[in-house]
Design a protein around this nucleic acid. Structure first.
Lengths: 137, 137
DNA sequence: GTAATTGCTCTAGTCACTAGAGGTTCAAGT
DNA sequence: ACTTGAACCTCTAGTGACTAGAGCAATTAC
């Protein structure tokens, strides 16, 4: 039996976040003490660890909801879990590519200015003029 | 003189977004027609283009506000603009590194499962168990 | 028994927009 | 001049995933 604070420190998820997860139906409402405080069973910890890990990997709450349903049915084909993970992986790689382009662009912009004053600053100039960019964004 | 719709299509910024930028003080309120519709001067277009480009590069609204103040004073030293841009570049590169780690992790997780059913699915297992991960996140 | 800590609910705020309701003005065609 | 339909107006509320704070109650340690 954990209090919410113990669960929080074990799972590395903040107390208000746990209550928030309960609100949106991501975790089940636990039993309460006589004084109305939450008391968790150990399985709440594994559920929360699962959620936290998936969140850390960047999965959305909605994707996690789907995975939790899957997780609850050990006989279901797990193809769907792979689809979710692969979809996320694709998103991730697209995002990385885009950020890398931006990084290149911003590096070019900042290294291009020899001016001391705003009037001739290439950084500000480049920000006002997309045509100097090498890539789409 | 542009209507808000013309400004929108020229700057590639959606109409409600332009009004939002006005609300938060990122662009100046323009003159109005007799019927109370917004009428923009050409300089609103360059301002908006500047904002859009900076947003596309991932700068926050607050950072852009700072840059706009700088932009308005051509005699100021532009060091500050460089500081803002470099700070953002650092953030960007940290983010890229992190996403790459996640991508590696997720790839490893999804390629590790030969099971057909959820009961033995390594994807779901790995999500519940951070200790199998090679990196922090 | 008392004090400190932890817990409770509820509301509102964050960021950068986006969506929708319900009404008004403008520009083009007749 | 008149009509139609697109574009415009304001205002409120919603998004995602939390976070912050107020004001109070329960628990735990000494």
């Amino acid at each position: 039996m954990f209090s919410i604070g113990q669960l929080s420190s074990q799972a590395q998820v903040k107390v208000p976040t746990i209550r928030y997860y309960e609100d949106i139906g991501l975790i089940d409402p636990p039993h309460r003490s006589e004084g109305n405080q939450r008391r968790y069973e150990p399985d709440a910890l594994s559920r929360l660890t699962f959620i936290r890990h998936a969140r850390d990997l960047g999965l959305s709450i909605d994707a996690i909801k789907d995975l939790i349903v899957l997780n609850a049915n050990p006989d279901m084909p797990c193809k769907e879990a792979h689809v979710i993970a692969n979809q996320h992986l694709k998103d991730l790689q697209r995002k990385i590519t885009q950020l890398q382009q931006l990084s290149v662009e911003l590096t070019r912009i900042t290294q291009n200015c020899n001016s001391d004053t705003v009037g001739h600053c290439k950084v500000l100039e480049a920000l006002g003029d997309h045509s100097s960019c090498k890539t789409d964004h």
